[in-house]
């Protein structure tokens, strides 16, 4: 393809005609992937809905064991990180490498705060013996509060949903560290910021899913 590669900028892969086509493709591909993610979590939401419809008292009772305050803090942390990732894209579009790096760094930091809080929540529950499935071994006080013998179903769903979501946060942290390094090498500018843009899309989805998880799991009245 001599007649094309001559006009190709370095960041455009050989099989694309131009930068626009590459950007559009990457963006469409990411949207398709996000639809797929929604369906993936959709399965868990379905399981949640079915069991909540079957055992409503159990869900109200079990949700009391979750810490609304820290769940709420985490929600704010993630919403904040969505804002900073949007600002990172804005910086890339305006050729501000420094701004891009700072915003990415804040996003990574917020994501880490989220994971640390999540860790302490898990840790506290495991300490009380509220563990998934066969590790279910609650202390007598907890057992008193959670009289329903099927309580472990709620926590099975809780651990699956938050666990899979947590994995997504970890993947997001990894992606943003990679972006941060590439930004440091000056890979991104107003002509080419596709990876920043599509990672941003991914991060918004991770955030959005948490915004559903928080009220569904923590705020059952």
């Amino acid at each position: 393809m001599a007649n094309h590669s001559a006009t190709h900028p370095a960041h455009v892969q050989h099989h694309f005609v131009d930068s626009d086509q590459q950007f559009e493709s990457a963006k469409l591909g990411m949207w398709v992937f996000l639809v797929n993610e929604i369906l993936f979590f959709g399965g868990l939401f379905c399981a949640y809905i079915v069991f909540r419809a079957w055992y409503p008292e159990l869900f109200t009772q079990a949700a009391l064991e979750l810490n609304k305050l820290w769940g709420g803090v985490n929600t704010i942390v993630l919403i904040g990180s969505s804002l900073t990732v949007a600002m990172a894209i804005r910086s890339a579009q305006k050729n501000q490498t420094k701004g891009l790096r700072i915003n990415l760094l804040i996003t990574i930091a917020l994501a880490c705060v989220f994971m640390v809080i999540k860790y302490f929540e898990y840790e506290h529950k495991l300490h009380l013996g509220i563990a998934p499935g066969s590790f279910w071994n609650p202390t007598p006080e907890i057992l008193h509060e959670l009289s329903d013998p099927r309580a472990n179903i709620f926590f099975g769903i809780y651990y699956m949903m938050t666990g899979v979501h947590g994995l997504h946060v970890l993947v997001g942290i990894g992606l943003m560290i990679w972006l941060y390094i590439r930004a440091g090498k000056g890979h991104f500018n107003s002509e080419y910021y596709t990876p920043v843009e599509i990672t941003g899309l991914y991060w918004h989805l991770v955030d959005l899913i948490w915004i559903f998880l928080f009220p569904l799991l923590y705020l059952i009245e």
């Binding site: 399965g43 868990l44 399981a47 069991f51 998934p132 499935g133 066969s134 590790f135 099927r150 472990n152 179903i153 099975g156 769903i157 651990y159 699956m160």
Partner: peptide, 12 residues
């Protein structure tokens, strides 16, 4: 979910 059912009986 099925694997989790097998590994640790989450009960769904």
């Amino acid at each position: 979910l099925l694997s989790m059912e097998n590994i640790m009986d989450i009960g769904i």
